[in-house]
Simulated assay, not measured.
Amino acid sequence: MSAIDIHDLSVVFPDGTTGLADIDLHVRPEEFLVLIGASGSGKTTLLRTIAGFLTPRSGSIAVDGRDITHVPPEKRRMGMVFQQHAVWPHMSVARNVEYPLRRAGVDKRKERVEQALELVGLAGFASRRPDSLSGGQRQRVALARAIVADPTVLLLDEALSALDEPLRDNLRRELVTLTRRAGLTTVHVTHDRTEALSVADRIVVLGEGRIQQIATPAELVSRPATAAVAAFIADATLLDATVLNAAPSEIIGSGESLTLAILPHMVEVLPAGEEGIPAQVRSVLYDGGDWSLTLDALDTVFRASVRGVRPEVGDAVTMRVHGPLGYRA
């Protein structure tokens, strides 16, 4: 059980680009923390800095109170799994998993390897060659290799993104179970919002090298901290607005500019001719019992969800918006 404490962390690349700025983050022992954000947001930069592959310009990283900011990666006791599983084809499964133990000069390696393989569901695979395994099995080998040396922290860099569904979903579930069983503190980078929301204890949303919000999945979806987070996480439509009349108790005053975030569940879809905003169906996708729609209205594209009869592309409908979120512009 290991806690990670990051304080005032900044990374600047050789060309002067800021990779991270003023990152403060506490990862709890045994927590499964997910880093997510658009391309270039800093999520992989943060993971690689925790791993020791990047040197920060300022700030500190500590694990269980021990400052590791300038400790080499191989001495940080962290296991890491990348998107491409990088299993060595000329070695057996056992030799692949054993490799970090052999480099560290650990004795009695066979028992440790067998335990790691059993933990990832590959008991009995020790003598197999990687080319005889499926993609999911090779990724399990990579996981076993990452945990065999009893790391304090497990780092996952898009570790499941190269796998196809439903294999990816199965391994995602098993990964969460594995980290719980092993008592691992895990930091996982993904670009997949569904994956982040399904596996995380908490999610860190990054943008332009800064933390935009840290929240549980439920909090993140129901209360995005900014309009940008609402758009990224919940497919919110963003609209510029001006307050015409604010009640005396309102924090926001009359005449103030706002950004409104309208999440899909806030959009009610009714038949054409009803009171509301005229709209037209742009696209229709099946989504687990509902129909996920995009609607053209007010020169803007809105997302919505309906149940029952499938609307058709081009249908005229009416939309009503309930409870949009307002953010200071």
Rank of each mutant, 00 (worst) to 15 (best):
H85A: 09
S92M: 09
E114S: 03
M91L: 15
A86L: 10
M91A: 06
A116D: 02
R109S: 07
G121S: 08
A86W: 06
R112T: 11
R112M: 12
V120S: 00
E98Y: 06
V93T: 03
Q83F: 04
N96E: 02
H85V: 06
V113S: 01
V106N: 00
P89D: 13
K110L: 11
E118N: 14
K110I: 11
A123F: 05
F82H: 12
A94R: 14
R109P: 03
Q83S: 07
D107I: 04
E98C: 08
L119V: 10
R109Y: 03
V106L: 06
F82A: 10
V97T: 05
A123S: 13
Q115E: 15
D107E: 13
V106F: 01
A116E: 00
F82S: 12
H85K: 07
A116F: 00
V97A: 04
L117H: 04
H90T: 02
V87G: 02
L101T: 02
H90L: 01
E114W: 00
A123C: 04
R95D: 12
P100G: 13
Q84Y: 11
L101V: 07
E111W: 01
G105N: 09
P89G: 12
K110A: 15
R109C: 05
A94W: 05
R102Y: 07
G124D: 05
A123K: 15
Q115F: 03
V93P: 00
A94L: 09
Q83R: 14
R95P: 02
A94N: 08
E118I: 03
E98R: 15
Q83V: 09
E111Q: 14
Y99Q: 11
L101R: 09
A104Q: 10
P100V: 14
P100S: 13
S92C: 08
V113K: 01
L101F: 07
R112Q: 15
P89I: 13
L117N: 03
R103G: 05
L122Y: 08
A86R: 11
K108A: 07
E118F: 00
L119S: 11
A94Q: 12
E114Q: 04
W88F: 15
K110M: 12
V97W: 02
V106Y: 01
E118R: 15
F82I: 11
V120C: 02
A104H: 02
V106W: 01
P100E: 10
E114Y: 00
E118H: 11
R102T: 09
H90V: 00
F82K: 15
V106P: 01
V97S: 01
V120P: 00
V106K: 05
V106C: 03
L119A: 15
M91Q: 13
A116N: 04
Q83I: 08
